[in-house]
């Protein structure tokens, strides 16, 4: 039951949430970070998750990425329901089928760029596919920097290395939580461009949390979250459209608070 057939789901769903609820704290201090989220994330799509601060974006991503367990509801990645998996199975799932890019602190400081990129494969005891590895390295454009350690690279370079690491094991889905949150606009553009190309050229599935409309405009589909619920959705988004929806959301939030 737990292990459903991997990949090739007819509807092309890479990951999905079914009525996900995540509650922090108890009683008085209770926070419903996710309040019944149901969503399908499609294969080969670049999905952005947006919403005001505290709306549950990170929590949703963590639950889908097997980093956190929901209070109720079901999270499915690549056809595998996460609910009943033990730590070991979760570890293997993260290692083999999920790629991560965090906002900061993405790289192990003691390893070189290349070693960092290959870390998930090394941990799995697998050899990289040389052609794929080359393609990824060329795409991030950091070939001359492969022998450098993170402390010798700029923030943008570090994030591109992190993206390469997320892609090199050909995961079913890549999760990125504010990958450009700490970067200037030039570096941001490099990282986002790379994620976009990985979807277009390599057919990757990417889910990115962001609060930056510019970043979101690189995506195919934007999900809007507010108070732990999916409240809206945009396809083929433009920056202005995104800004408008965000504006509406924060207005709603202010009026509710007031």
């Amino acid at each position: 039951m737990t292990e459903q057939p991997t990949g090739g789901a007819p509807d092309g769903v890479a990951a999905s949430a079914h009525d996900l609820v995540k509650v922090y704290g108890t009683e008085e201090a209770e926070v419903r970070a996710l309040d019944g989220v149901t969503v399908d994330l499609m294969k080969g799509e670049f999905t952005a998750i947006m919403g005001p601060s505290g709306s549950g974006k990170s929590t949703l991503m963590h639950c889908l990425a097997a980093l956190d367990t929901p209070t109720s509801g079901e999270a499915v990645v690549d056809g595998t329901s996460l609910g009943r998996l033990k730590d070991k199975a979760l570890t293997n799932l993260r290692r083999d089928r999920i790629g991560f890019v965090f906002q900061a602190f993405n790289l192990v400081p003691t390893l070189t760029a290349k070693e960092n990129i290959l870390l998930p494969l090394d941990l799995a005891g697998k050899k990289p596919d040389p052609a794929w590895f080359d393609a990824v390295i060329d795409a991030i454009g950091l070939r001359p920097r492969l022998g450098h350690r993170p402390s010798e690279m700029s923030g943008g370079q570090q994030q591109r290395v992190a993206c390469a690491r997320a892609l090199v094991s050909r995961p079913s889905i890549v999760f990125a939580d504010e990958p450009t949150g700490n970067l200037d606009s030039t570096s941001s553009a490099e990282v986002l461009g790379f994620l976009r190309r990985s979807v277009d050229d390599f057919g990757q599935t990417v889910v990115m949390v962001t609060h930056d409309p510019v970043a979101a405009s690189y995506s195919d589909r934007v999900l809007f979250l507010a108070d732990g619920k999916v409240v809206d959705e945009l396809r083929e988004p433009h920056r202005d459209a995104i800004l408008e929806r965000m504006g509406a959301l924060s207005d709603a939030a202010t009026s509710k608070a007031g």
Binding site: D87, T91, N92, D96, F105, N106, P109, L119, P120, L123
Partner: peptide, 16 residues
């Protein structure tokens, strides 16, 4: 702590 978390996230098992 953060490094440990990162390693765990990218697939280092508890045993390892």
């Amino acid at each position: 702590t953060r490094e440990v978390g990162l390693l765990r996230a990218v697939g280092l098992s508890r045993r390892r």
